[in-house]
């Protein structure tokens, strides 16, 4: 649970939007909160903060679409 909150916190920082925390099921790409650049920033931060390296080609927007889903995917790779 704590890990999930940390991930959502990180996403809120990158998207510069608190809506991410209020609604963790929001599709970040559809809502225009996250784009390719934001994705890369997130992956770099995930690597430095959590020590999890996610290959860019692993990042499929259909799977890594909401804060909750991103947290789940990262938990799997932990």
């Amino acid at each position: 649970m704590e890990f999930k909150n940390e991930v959502i916190e990180l996403l809120a920082e990158i998207c510069q939007e608190d809506e991410v925390k209020a609604n963790p099921d929001i599709d970040l790409f559809e809502a225009g909160l996250l784009d390719s650049f934001g994705t890369v920033e997130m992956l770099v931060e995930v690597e430095s903060r959590f020590g999890i390296s996610v290959p860019i080609s692993e990042f499929d927007r259909d799977v890594w679409n909401t804060p909750n889903h991103i947290a789940e995917q990262l938990a799997k790779l932990k």
Partner: peptide, 8 residues
């Protein structure tokens, strides 16, 4: 994305 990742 790979280029941006690298530079960042």
């Amino acid at each position: 994305m790979r280029l941006v990742f690298w530079i960042t």
